[in-house]
Design a binder for these strands. Structure first.
Length: 194
DNA sequence: CCCTAGCGGTGCT
DNA sequence: AGCACCGCTAGGG
């Protein structure tokens, strides 16, 4: 199945969204290199119409997310080509509110595999739609940031934006802070759905 | 701070 | 089947 690359301009630079016939399949951070290559062949008009709509939804959602806010609406996501475990992890990630963080261990518990902490890290790294599927809200149990495939600067920046948005909304972290001044999420996550 | 063992999903052979 | 990765963690210097 071919993916259609579409530029998404933001204050942080131009992301590239890749759409399948089912929705947003990948999102890439701005790169300094050459701009995104055009699709190999011109897709049918019906698909183009859908993609234009999804492009607007993606652009709006991404701008909101980059402002540290929860996107009011997402385009349909096409996460079909991955493993069940990865999809479970990503489903949990989508339950983490903006401005909060969970640990890899908490996410592992939430997907019902409490010892699969490293596997959760792998699944986060395999997240094809970063920012909108907020893998950046997962940090290490010892207070460290953990990793980020697209570069730790992005992770730091996204978390800082969310903390700032929380701050501006009048919400203050009530339970102390981690190393970077990020709010700590002490509650055990509720398993999503069961 | 450091190191180590143990862990489990994934993608290679 | 085996095996080497890893965005990890708990436990011990």
């Amino acid at each position: 199945m071919s993916l259609l690359p579409v530029p998404i301009a933001t204050v942080c630079g131009t992301f590239t969204a890749y759409f399948s016939q089912h929705g947003l399949a990948r999102l890439k951070f701005p790169s300094h290199g050459a701009s995104s290559a055009p699709p190999p062949r011109r897709p049918p008009e019906r698909l183009l119409e859908r993609v234009r709509r999804w492009q607007r939804l993606t652009a709006r959602a991404l701008r909101e997310a980059l402002a540290g806010k929860r996107p009011s609406r997402l385009p349909p996501l096409d996460l079909s080509a991955r493993t069940p475990f990865q999809r479970r992890v990503w489903a949990v990630l989508r339950c983490i509110p903006a401005g909060q963080t969970w640990t890899y261990a908490q996410v592992a518990a939430a997907v019902g595999a409490p010892r699969a902490v490293r596997a959760v890290g792998n699944a986060c790294g395999a997240n094809p739609v970063p920012v909108l599927v907020p893998c950046h809200r997962v940090r290490r149990s010892d207070g460290g940031l953990g990793g980020f495939s697209s570069g730790l600067n992005w992770k730091r920046w996204l978390l800082a934006r969310e903390a700032l948005a929380q701050d501006r909304a009048g919400r203050r972290p009530s339970l102390g802070k981690g190393r970077l001044g990020l709010p700590i999420q002490p509650l055990r996550p509720k398993p999503a759905g069961g």
